[in-house]
Computed example of a mutant assay.
Amino acid sequence: MSLRLPDHWVWDFWFAEHGDDVHVFFLHAPRSLGDPDRRHRHARIGHAVSRDLLTWEVLAPPLGVGEPGTFDDLATWTGSVLRHDGRWHLFYTGLSTREDGAVQRIGMATSDDLLHWRKQGMVLEADGRWYEKLGPGVREEAWRDPWACFDHESERFHLLITARAGEGPPDGRGVLAHAWSDDLSSWQVGPPVSVPGEFAQLEVPQLVYLGGAWRVLFCAHPEDHSAARLSRPGTAAEGGTHYLTSQSKFGPYAPDRDRFFAGDPDNRYYAGRLLHHDGEWLFFAWRQFDEHGRFAGDLSDPMPVSFAADGSPMVTLPRS
C-alpha cells in the first residue's frame, strides 16, 4: 500500500501540492483500539509528503485537539487545504466533549510553510434555516468535511460541506451545504448546492472541473442509499465514491448516472480524492477491507483516470 502506518489506521485524506512535493493530510487513530468503529472519537490529523506518490515520509502532526472547552477538544476530522496570498489555510472538522461529539463544527488553521500550523479557532457551524440540527430524533448534527476553494469570478472563498437537510425523509436528507466569505474570517451560510433525496449523507466532498463539467466527488456507504433511490431499476446499494454534476460551479448538482464512479457492494475503497499531477488525473482512496475482509485502514496507490466519449470519468479499482 502507498501509505500504511504499523500502529495506526489511516482513513479520510486530502492533498496539497507545493513545488515538487505532494503533501497528504489524513485522519488516523491507534490500531490498539481494537474495534475500528472506535477510531472516530480518537481521530487526529496526520501529515506526510511524497514526490513519487508511492513512498511517503511521515511528518509531525499539523495540529492536535484543542484545549478543554474548545470546539475541537475531543477529535479532529476531515478537511482541506487552500493557499491564498502565500499562506496556507487548513479547514477541518472539530468535535467537542461538551456535546460528547454529537455536534460537528468547522475550524481553520494557518501556515506559512505547510509544516507549522496555528489554529484560528472555530469559523462556522450549521444554520438551522436549511440544515438539520441536533435535537429530538437527531443522533448527530452533521457539519463536516469542508472543501475549500477560491472563485475568481465571484472573488470569494467558498466551502462545500457535508450536511443534512432539515426536512424530508430521513434516509435521503444528505446534501452539500454551501458557505462563502470575502475575507476567510466572516462566513455566510446559504442553501445547499445539491438536492436531497438520494442519500442519507454525502461525505468528503471534492469540487473539480473534469471532463467538460463541474463535478463534486462524494462518498457513501451501502446503507446510505435512500429507499427512493433503490426503487429505481438498475440501482444498487454499493459503497465507495461517486460524483454529482453541474454546468455551474456552485450548482445545482445532481447525479447524472446511478452506478458509482468507484464503488462496489463490499465497500472496499472509500472517500476517494482526485489529484491532477504531472498532466494526468489520478484517483486515490483509503482501503476499508483487505482480501480477507478485515478492516485495513491504509491509503491506496494512485489509480489512473480515463474518460468516456461523453467526458465522464472512469477508474478501475484493484481486485484486493
Results as ranks from 00 to 15, higher is better:
residue 275 L to C: 08
residue 63 L to G: 06
residue 296 A to F: 05
residue 35 D to W: 05
residue 217 L to C: 05
residue 305 V to S: 09
residue 33 L to R: 04
residue 37 D to F: 14
residue 114 L to N: 01
residue 49 V to F: 11
residue 85 D to F: 07
residue 140 E to P: 01
residue 214 W to C: 08
residue 157 F to Y: 06
residue 5 L to M: 02
residue 205 P to W: 12
residue 195 V to L: 13
residue 279 G to F: 15
residue 88 W to F: 15
residue 109 A to D: 06
residue 281 W to R: 07
residue 99 E to N: 12
residue 149 C to E: 15
residue 198 E to C: 12
residue 47 H to T: 06
residue 106 I to N: 03
residue 157 F to W: 03
residue 125 E to L: 06
residue 193 V to P: 11
residue 111 S to Q: 04
residue 251 G to T: 05
residue 82 L to F: 03
residue 147 W to Y: 15
residue 296 A to S: 14
residue 20 D to G: 11
residue 105 R to H: 04
residue 68 P to D: 03
residue 110 T to R: 01
residue 279 G to C: 06
residue 318 P to H: 03
residue 320 S to G: 10
residue 57 E to S: 15
residue 205 P to A: 08
residue 316 T to V: 01
residue 51 R to Y: 13
residue 178 H to W: 08
residue 271 A to Y: 12
residue 258 D to N: 03
residue 113 D to M: 02
residue 260 F to V: 10
residue 182 D to G: 07
residue 8 H to R: 14
residue 122 M to G: 07
residue 20 D to S: 13
residue 129 R to Q: 09
residue 18 H to P: 08
residue 306 S to E: 00
residue 91 F to E: 04
residue 166 G to I: 12
residue 220 A to H: 08
residue 203 E to T: 00
residue 87 R to P: 01
residue 215 R to G: 03
residue 292 H to D: 14
residue 143 W to N: 06
residue 88 W to E: 12
residue 272 G to W: 05
residue 279 G to L: 04
residue 90 L to E: 08
residue 214 W to R: 01
residue 137 G to D: 06
residue 149 C to I: 12
residue 230 L to C: 02
residue 11 W to D: 15
residue 270 Y to I: 08
residue 123 V to I: 15
residue 115 L to H: 06
residue 13 F to D: 15
residue 48 A to V: 04
residue 18 H to T: 07
residue 59 L to T: 07
residue 197 G to A: 03
residue 23 H to G: 13
residue 126 A to K: 01
residue 306 S to W: 03
residue 138 V to L: 11
residue 138 V to Q: 03
residue 150 F to R: 07
residue 188 Q to R: 09
residue 216 V to T: 01
residue 243 Y to E: 07
residue 118 R to L: 08
residue 218 F to K: 12
residue 224 D to S: 14
residue 43 A to C: 07
residue 249 K to V: 03
residue 216 V to E: 00
residue 178 H to D: 05
residue 214 W to K: 00
residue 142 A to N: 14
residue 146 P to H: 05
residue 26 F to S: 13
residue 271 A to E: 05
residue 140 E to I: 14
residue 170 P to G: 04
residue 112 D to C: 13
residue 295 F to I: 06
residue 142 A to P: 01
residue 47 H to V: 01
residue 307 F to T: 10
residue 194 S to V: 14
residue 34 G to I: 10
residue 226 S to E: 11
residue 96 S to W: 05
residue 11 W to Q: 12
residue 236 A to Y: 04
residue 118 R to G: 00
residue 92 Y to E: 00
residue 201 Q to E: 08
residue 257 R to K: 08
residue 48 A to L: 00
residue 262 A to S: 02
residue 236 A to I: 02
residue 190 G to P: 08
residue 177 A to W: 10
residue 285 A to F: 08
residue 49 V to Q: 11
residue 261 F to Y: 02
residue 131 Y to D: 05
residue 59 L to Y: 13
residue 176 L to C: 13
residue 41 R to G: 11
residue 159 L to E: 08
residue 121 G to E: 00
residue 284 F to M: 02
residue 62 P to W: 00
residue 152 H to S: 12
residue 214 W to Q: 05
residue 96 S to D: 05
residue 129 R to C: 02
residue 68 P to N: 05
residue 259 R to T: 12
residue 290 D to T: 07
